Computed example of a mutant assay.
Amino acid sequence: MTTKSTTTWKRIGALALSLTMAWGLGPVHMQSGASSASSPTCGSGDHGLSATLNEGSGVEDQQLQFTDIDFLNNTTGRAAGEGFLIGTSNAGCTWQSIYTGQWQFTQLDFPNNVNGFALAQMKDSAKTYFIRTTDGGSHWKRLDTPGIQFKRIDFKNKNEGYGYTYNGAYRTQDGGLTWTKINTPANTRSVAFATDKQGYAVVVVPGSGYHLLWTSDGGKNWTTSLRIVSAAWNGADLYANGKQVWAVLYGDAGMSQQSYSLYASGNEGRNWRQVFAQSTAGGGPAPGGNSLGKGKGPADPGGHPGNMALIGNQTAYLSGGSPAAGKVGIGRSYDAGSTWKNADLDGTGYSSRISFPSVKTGWLVVTSNESPTIYETTNGGSTWKQKFLLPGE
């Protein structure tokens, strides 16, 4: 999920999604003979949707899996998978199918309840496409981006947004119809903009490691604020909201384990603190760490980071999953990284994605061979309640 400030659209999202599902901004698919009201228990099982999702998604020969989740507020949101999109407007008590078809979603981004954007692939193709909906997700249109392959998108509203590649950044002001390249430093590996002026970049310097930079003029000038020694540099992810910015820096991976470090700033990238450096036996030293490491990320041992969710200037969450341990979890901070706490989730899985529309209420999708699941927390991730469960293998 991309990081977004709470907006007026988010506050009215519940009403809009209710109207979308009830009055048909595109088809709402349900299993024959079933209705949301007939679900035996609020928030239990697959809500009678598995057969419809399997048939419509075109992946009948494989298990349905969740790939991303995006909530507008505490009650209204969507969860996506390979060939399907489902939604709820009552905090997961009932769910409905919004879309089934060719698009295998990798990231959702709904700045309001009608207009949405996504990155998606098609079956048997590794290419990622940028797509848009104007009816809540029932229908999607591909928007061509010649020569640009986005790895993450972040829309502030239905018109203005950012697209991030593996080595650069682009901005759109017309809902993704056209894109303007933003000036970034040489050897950039990740970029994030909190506003049209305030942005951040991770740069790789061969023989040195990672450098963290910031700009306050939209990328015209960049200033280095931290240099991090690392023998390996295998990419990075940046997240920014308000005055806080977080950097996930990757070392090597091996034996299903990932070495990586997490850095945080609470003053727009001027000063940074290392939150943890997860060194592993399989991946070696984490950037800025040593062979013993300096703390661990969620879903240890050897957990792989998922995505981050930032709220305001202080609160941050990071999802994680461990293929080696077969579990998922989240980490959190309420003080811009001064303190950090990890919590494992009961249940099996190997990767996860999160969406936190407010400080304590969040949503998580788990990828699992046994039970792909959607969970909700109302206490900042200390405990989780199951809201949707797909059949296992």
Rank of each mutant, 00 (worst) to 15 (best):
T3V: 15
S5Q: 15
I12A: 00
G13M: 08
A14W: 08
L15A: 14
A22R: 12
H29P: 00
S32I: 10
T41V: 15
G45L: 03
G48H: 02
S50H: 14
T52G: 08
L53E: 10
N54M: 15
G58A: 04
V59N: 15
Q62G: 05
L64D: 04
L64N: 09
Q65F: 12
F71H: 07
L72D: 10
N73H: 06
N74M: 11
T75E: 12
T75F: 06
A79T: 09
G83A: 10
A91Q: 11
T94P: 01
W95P: 00
G101R: 09
Q102P: 11
D109I: 02
V114W: 06
G116C: 00
F117H: 06
F117Y: 15
L119P: 02
A120G: 10
M122S: 13
A126S: 13
K127H: 14
K127L: 13
T128L: 01
Y129S: 05
Y129Q: 08
F130Q: 03
F130I: 02
T134H: 11
D135M: 02
D135I: 01
G137E: 06
R142I: 14
D144H: 12
P146F: 11
Q149D: 09
R152Y: 12
D154M: 12
N157A: 05
Y166D: 15
G168P: 09
G168W: 07
A169Y: 05
A169H: 10
R171F: 15
G176V: 07
T178P: 03
T184P: 00
T184F: 01
P185W: 11
T188I: 03
S190C: 05
A192N: 04
F193V: 07
A194W: 06
D196L: 13
V205F: 05
S208A: 14
S208V: 15
G209W: 03
L212R: 08
S216I: 11
G219S: 04
N221G: 09
W222V: 06
W222T: 09
T223P: 01
S225Q: 13
L226V: 11
A231M: 13
A231Y: 10
G235D: 09
A236M: 07
N241T: 12
G242C: 11
K243V: 04
L249C: 03
Y250H: 13
D252N: 15
D252F: 09
A253D: 15
Y260I: 02
G266L: 07
N267Y: 05
W272H: 10
R273M: 04
Q278P: 09
Q278E: 14
S279C: 07
T280H: 04
P287L: 03
G288I: 13
G293F: 10
G293Q: 05
K294L: 14
A299K: 07
G302I: 10
P305K: 00
M308P: 03
T315G: 01
T315A: 07
Y317E: 03
G320D: 03
G321K: 05
S322M: 02
S322R: 06
A324E: 12
D335R: 07
G337H: 05
W340D: 02
K341N: 04
N342E: 02
N342C: 07
N342D: 07
G349W: 04
P357V: 11
P357W: 08
T361K: 04
T361H: 02
V366A: 02
N369S: 13
S371A: 14
P372F: 05
P372A: 00
Y375T: 00
N379D: 15
G381E: 01
T383W: 03
F388L: 11
L390K: 00
P391I: 04
P391K: 08
